[in-house]
Write a protein that binds this DNA or RNA. Structure first.
Lengths: 104, 104
DNA sequence: ATCGTTTATCGCCGATGGACGATGAAAGCT
DNA sequence: AGCTTTCATCGTCCATCGGCGATAAACGAT
């Protein structure tokens, strides 16, 4: 996963409300839009915007059902991102103590 | 891990240059500042700012060695974040096909 | 046809982000 | 003392974000 792609996904997740939405979508297969709207004390337009950001990052997809929309996570993207993070974390070589403890 | 904390870490990672820096720091235990500066075609002040963002998010720590600085990743933070992402991903229940394929 | 429901988009605003150059501070070297 | 190296901070500029209300678009129901 390229730096740019990782940064894009991270940017999409860089807001508590969007993390909340992602958790919500992960937790339930039923993902009607108005449930998302009802779950947060924000204007409908604001949440719609957050959903748009998540869709543009490829994390969320949606399709209309009648007058409503069904949102759900795109399979694999979150896994890939988490795995990419884990990969980096796995290569960490801690600061060598002989160079001084890495305190702030 | 709270939504807020996850969003903070994600925000710190929401820039290709910072992803690059994190990879760099993960790859080598030697993490003198000027190596970071030399590795990127950006002004020194710009990179210093990126490092500050990473430090404020708790991803990076640093300590002075003589006139230089040594930067390194804070152990565990990246793992925790990756694990939190993986946790969410693990709970994903795909859109039920009976409700229509989740195409864009 | 008209209305209500649901969602997306627009325009606006204040706040934040990201880049730069310039300046400042700390430490080592001569 | 004076110079160099290394890094942080400041001020400025422009772009983007995040919030809102208002409005539009799509659709089902009456």
């Amino acid at each position: 996963m390229t730096d740019e792609r990782m940064a894009l996904v991270a940017k999409a997740l860089a807001h508590p409300v969007r993390i909340h939405i992602v958790r919500l979508l992960a937790a339930q297969s039923e993902c009607r839009g108005h449930e998302v709207f009802a779950d947060l004390p924000l204007a409908q337009s604001t949440i719609s915007e957050h959903l748009r950001v998540l869709k543009e990052a490829g994390l969320v997809q949606s399709h209309p059902v009648g007058t409503a929309m069904v949102y759900c996570l795109v399979g694999g993207v979150l896994e890939e991102f988490g795995a990419a993070i884990g990969e980096i974390a796995a290569t960490v070589s801690e600061c060598e103590p002989d160079e001084g403890a890495c305190d702030e």
